[in-house]
Amino acid sequence: MTPSDYIAVPLLVSGVMFFLAGSAGLLRFPDVYTRLHALTKSDNVGLGLIVAGLVVEADSWFVVGKLLFIWLLVLLAGASVANLITKGAMQRGTRMWTR
């Protein structure tokens, strides 16, 4: 392993953990609102960690820029779509889960 690998691998692994947790939440949480909560965490933080891990290993600044750009776009799309789905669910009168 090169020195950069020691930084990149923990970042990538923790990113994967966020995606695993997000997938588990998507499958197991009781209603659309809580599922979105789990999903957006993996989209935002999980992808952020994976992008950070890949940035450490990137060959050129151009690649770094592209990776960060992808993360920004996913942040924008993920946050907006989560808002739209929630709004749609509330307009349809989907009840929030209570214990």
Binding site: S80, N83, L84, K87
Partner: peptide, 18 residues
């Protein structure tokens, strides 16, 4: 069609040039 809310509007405004 229901009018687009501020989030969708902003998304379209930001993403279209991109």
């Amino acid at each position: 069609v229901a009018p687009a809310g501020p989030v969708l509007h902003t998304l379209a405004v930001v993403l279209t040039p991109v």
